[in-house]
């Protein structure tokens, strides 16, 4: 193991770990690329189930350098003393880390994160041209967006119920509240006929003014930024993505810059060791392919 601790940012209070690539890739491809792993919620930079530590070391074996770090106030990083909001920190600090790494000879970056880490990765990628790829792992967009969340959960509920034998058994044996079921069905039908828009009650935190998820995705694709959309088979993020991508899903599925992956049977934070290994294998393969195309 040849890792180094980092103290970054204007006050050196942003703590991270740098894992250098073990070996150079063929033709030096990707030698200027570093992978940044962003906090999953409040979990410190080792990641849920220590998966970021293991992933950084696996990437090193694949010839890629990686940095896992903590945003201010999370994990080992001290809290900021200014008045930046969490939404500002979410993009500013990854940019500060990239500035730090650029001084060490890294000019291109792959940003990745699970859950809120995916959100930070995506928003930072839109802001900063140095990001050549971003992996959105169990992305759920802005969790304060209640309308989006209810649409995603509703999709999940219907999908689950339709394909679950137990649900049908309950329906046919009278073990359900029919009145409630019919009123819910009526509500759903009424909703499907009205205008379907996803609007947040919160002010937009997008770097682009009033842009939707697909508008932002298009900005990345226009500048040839690769995107990995990786979801856990049992997580609600699949439905979130379906709602967010809407009609554009089919177009994106044909776009060579976007990769879709599902880790079957996994939960939101890849709790099982087998799921962690599957997730790491997918990620390393994708990141290595992205790096291969960089000179």
């Amino acid at each position: 193991m040849n890792e180094q601790t980092l103290s970054m940012g204007p006050t050196n209070s942003c703590v991270g770990i740098f894992t250098p690539a073990k070996q150079r890739r063929q033709n030096n491809a990707g030698s200027k690329v570093a992978v940044l792993l962003l906090n999953s919620g409040l979990i410190h930079h080792a990641g849920p189930g220590r998966v970021y530590t293991r992933l950084a070391r696996a990437l090193s074996d694949h010839g890629l350098s990686a940095v896992r770090f903590d945003l201010s106030g999370i994990g080992d990083s001290a809290a900021r003393q200014d008045n930046l909001s969490i939404y500002q920190i979410a993009t500013q600090e990854p940019i500060e880390v990239m500035d730090y790494l650029q001084k060490r000879g890294y000019h291109q970056f792959i940003l990745a994160g699970i859950c809120s880490g995916a959100y930070c990765s995506f928003k930072t990628a839109i802001k900063d041209q140095r990001v050549i790829a971003t992996a959105l792992i169990n992305y759920q967009d802005d969790t304060s967006n209640n309308e989006l969340a209810s649409q995603a959960w509703s999709k999940r509920y219907w999908t689950d119920s339709l394909f679950r034998l137990g649900a049908w058994k309950n329906l046919l044996t009278g073990k359900v509240d029919y009145q409630r079921l019919f009123s819910t069905l009526g509500l759903a039908a009424k909703k499907s006929t009205s205008e379907r828009t996803v609007e947040s009650m919160e002010p937009s935190h997008s770097p682009l003014q009033n842009a939707s998820f697909t508008d932002e995705m298009d900005v990345l694709l226009e500048r040839n930024c690769n995107v990995l959309l990786l979801v856990s088979g049992l997580d609600i993020s699949q439905q979130f993505l379906n709602v967010l991508l809407g009609e554009k899903l089919k177009t994106y599925q044909k776009n060579p810059l976007i990769d879709f992956k599902v880790v079957d049977g996994a939960d939101h934070l890849f709790t099982n060791v087998a799921h962690q290994n599957q997730f790491m294998a997918y990620f390393c393969e994708w990141a290595a392919e992205v790096a291969e195309t960089q000179k």
Partner: peptide, 28 residues
Amino acid sequence: QENNNLQRYVENIQPLFIGLNDNAIYAC
């Protein structure tokens, strides 16, 4: 100058490794 002012209020956490290679222990 601004950074110096900020520095005074930020907690001093020093990340480091104790030991080397396969025996390295991360500490703060």
